[in-house]
């Protein structure tokens, strides 16, 4: 490995860095330019489907952080009425175990990211705040049908020039 002339190794390295000086940058200017994330991204807070939910509380039992609160009442025909359903996003670690555990596909993760809030209390979401709305996009995590409809993830592999193959 030792080169014959002292400094040859450094010169070789410099030649490489020089080559990179003349290629286009691969960085993007984040808030203005946005790349598509993974279709299975586990972003932001949960999205809850009130119609599908039966109040079985499997999500609350599967949460490792105990961030999901659910209170149910006994309704007609042995059905449960979900009186209270809330998630403290401040405790949530976005592991997605609740979405996996839900037997009725009533819980989704959000496709959006950027969860920063000015107040701690804004992270605590109640029943109304968790409902699906047009402004919230649903992630394809554990939802193969939704996954197909989302935009394709941008890969650094594709953005780089195809000179290496």
């Amino acid at each position: 490995m030792q080169s014959r002339f002292f400094g040859l190794g450094i010169a070789k390295g410099m030649a490489l860095t020089l080559k990179h000086l003349f290629r286009r940058p691969i960085t993007t200017q984040y808030p203005e330019e946005r790349l598509s994330t993974s279709r299975r991204i586990r972003g932001n807070e949960l999205i809850w489907n009130q119609v599908k939910c039966t109040g079985c509380a499997t999500c609350a039992k599967s949460c490792p952080q105990g961030a999901i609160e659910i209170v149910t009442l006994r309704g007609e025909e042995n059905k449960y009425i979900v009186e209270k359903f809330g998630v403290d996003s401040g405790y949530c670690i976005f592991c997605g175990l609740c979405v996996e555990a839900c037997p009725y596909d009533a819980l989704y993760l959000s496709y959006d990211y950027e969860l920063a809030r000015y107040r701690r209390r804004e992270l605590v979401k109640d029943k109304e705040a968790l409902l699906a709305s047009p402004s919230k996009r649903v992630s394809g995590y554990y939802q193969p049908e939704i996954e197909q409809t989302l935009p394709r993830q941008t890969l650094l592999l594709d953005r780089e020039k195809e000179e290496r193959e």
């Binding site: 299975r40 991204i41 670690i93 996954e147 993830q153 650094l156 592999l157």
Partner: peptide, 30 residues
């Protein structure tokens, strides 16, 4: 970064993947 892109594609997260499960993996690869 290229590897993280790939791992994000299968698991949905860049650092804390939570991908393996007892008895297999959480989801099939896309």
């Amino acid at each position: 970064e290229k590897i993280l892109d790939l791992l994000e594609m299968v698991s949905g997260q860049r650092l804390t993947y939570n991908y393996m499960r007892v008895g297999g993996v959480s989801q099939d690869i896309p």
